[in-house]
Write a protein that binds this DNA or RNA. Structure first.
Length: 484
RNA sequence: CGGGAUGUAGCGCAGUCUGGUAGCGCACUUGACUGGGGGUCAAGGGGUCCCGGGUUCAAAUCCCGGCAUCCCGACCA
């Protein structure tokens, strides 16, 4: 390989440590996850990126079904008057909605918004559907697209149109709605940690960061490879705010009318971006096996009459692994050398590579290379269908452990304001500090350090502390970070 | 929405200052030899120079306007 060649190879992806933002965009493009479209702020999700999203959908959808939720679909368009019903909700979303003002040749009597979220249209329908306490709870989820007119966009992390799921539930009591809100948060946490191998902090948002129209917002927060935090999912207890605005009432067991208690919650294609930024390295993407479009790539080594010897063996291995429930890609194309394929599939984050050539066939083995540790070892053919699934689970677990270690290493607890400011130099990660609960302190912290209050973790013990900013009495410790 | 930068082949860029036939590397196509960490040689194909106006005999290059993308800040999944 000439030096010139080497040069072009290394410049294909900007090194992660050199420029994290550029590295991220390079990975998105080179791994063919997404591409820019002719529409400002809107990306095209390419097949490889979409396959990752489909696995996330599948894994989350199963959890939602298991907990009694069902899927449905509501309209994309929302009449302006509906959006206006809930005051805080309008104020939060009106600045970033897209409007439809014409249909064909005609000016519309009433403008339509393209849904930025569906509380109002779903609330309107629930008011028709809910009459009795026997109709509750309503546990509906929808997978759809939404549009928010964003000024600054970035593939997967913030786009004008994005894909997500939004759950909307209605309950008889405050306590049941709260229970649901927390159940979903737990599901999100489980999805993030078990399947995305991404450790998260689950907790309560401050009032200034909560969803427009919610009583309480809970979130899961993850730490990206550059030390910035990312809100990876939210679950809102909406109280009776929407029930009152949309007159969702039922006759209770006590024969009188009550407003329902509602919740809403969502995760989006942003999770794909979160996975990239949690696990990726200088060679590109690193995918957790649970969501990898293919978990194993088999690269046959073409030598001599390999099509008669190596290839059939490779195909047999593929079939065996597929029978064992493993997603496999066999790349028997002749255009590129094995070395090229090694690099290419590393760039695409394939968790495990199997190489098979004449030498391996002689020894009745294949050669394996892990994406996460780059560890290489021979696996006897006879053990493949048990060893590979086990190895994939090991990789999955290792990615979570590694991300957790990174997060813990980048998490510091401080007691004083000077310590806080010092800890927030650069892009350090999470800083834990006591907070008095006042929005003023939160705002000053943000103004002075750019750090925002991510959340107050669930199960945080009550304390008699002093606010890191104002020294006033503080009942809780909050997690702060510079965020996306 | 403020500050800065960029826009030339799929990707990365040179050419713009000083106007005069559109270039380089990688990628792509064809063939041969190769193949266990991004192969070699040979022959090829590919361009609304972001868009619109203007100046000029002549514009990638100069002027005006717009759009898009990136970075840094203020708002949001």
């Amino acid at each position: 390989m000439s030096d010139q060649k080497k040069e072009s190879f290394v410049t294909e992806i900007t090194p992660r440590s050199e420029d994290f933002s550029r590295w991220y965009l390079d990975v998105v493009r080179r791994a063919e996850l997404a591409d820019y479209s002719p529409v400002k702020g809107c990306m095209v999700i390419r097949p490889y990126g979409y396959a990752i999203w489909e696995h996330i959908q599948r894994l989350l959808d199963a959890r939602l079904r298991k907990t009694g939720h069902v899927n449905a679909y509501f309209p994309l368009f929302i009449p302006e008057s509906l959006l206006m019903r809930e005051k805080e909700h309008v104020e939060g979303f009106a600045p970033q909605v897209a409007w439809v003002t014409r249909g064909g040749d005609e000016e519309l009597e009433e403008r339509l918004v393209i849904r930025p979220t569906s509380e109002v249209i779903i609330g309107t329908m629930y008011s028709k559907w809910v009459k009795s306490w026997r109709d509750l709870p309503v546990l509906i989820n929808q997978w759809c697209n939404v549009v928010r007119w964003e000024k600054v966009t970035r593939p997967f992390l913030r786009t004008t149109e994005f894909l997500w799921q939004e759950g909307h539930t209605a309950h008889e009591t405050d306590a049941e709605a709260e229970e649901e809100t927390l159940r979903i948060l737990e599901i999100y946490k489980s999805l993030a940690e078990t399947d995305l191998a991404m450790p998260v902090i689950d907790g309560l948002k401050s009032d200034s960061e909560k969803f427009a129209g919610a009583s309480r917002t809970y979130s899961i927060e993850a730490l990206m490879g550059d030390g910035r935090a990312l809100q990876a999912g939210t679950s809102h207890h909406l109280g009776q705010n929407f029930a009152k605005a949309f007159e969702i009432q039922f006759q209770g067991r006590d024969k009188t009318l009550h407003h329902v208690w509602t919740t809403s919650w969502g995760v989006s294609t942003r999770l794909v971006g979160a996975v990239i930024m949690t696990h990726g390295d200088d060679s590109g993407l690193v995918l957790p096996p649970h969501i990898a479009p293919y978990q194993v790539v088999i690269v046959p080594i073409p030598r001599g009459n390999w099509k008669e010897t190596v290839l059939p063996k490779a195909e047999a291995i593929r079939d065996d692994l597929e029978a064992a429930g493993v997603r496999v890609k066999l790349d028997a194309t002749e255009e590129n050398s094995p070395g090229w394929k090694f690099a290419e599939y590393e760039l695409r984050g394939v968790p495990l590579r199997l190489e098979i050539g004449p030498k391996d066939i002689e020894k009745a083995q294949v050669f394996s290379a892990r994406r996460d540790t780059r560890e290489k070892s021979a696996i006897p053919l006879a053990e493949l269908s048990t060893r590979v699934p086990a190895l994939l689970e090991e990789i999955q677990a290792n990615l979570l452990a590694r991300a957790k270690a990174f997060r813990d290493e980048r998490t510091r607890e401080v007691a004083t304001w000077d310590e806080f400011k010092a800890a927030m130099e650069g892009r350090p990660g999470f800083v834990i500090a006591s907070w008095c609960g006042m929005a003023e302190c939160e705002a000053e912290i943000k103004a002075e350090t750019q750090a925002t209050l991510r959340n107050i973790p669930l199960g945080s013990p009550r304390q008699n502390g002093q606010c890191v900013k104002c020294n006033g009495p503080s009942g809780v410790k909050a997690w702060f970070a510079k965020a996306y």
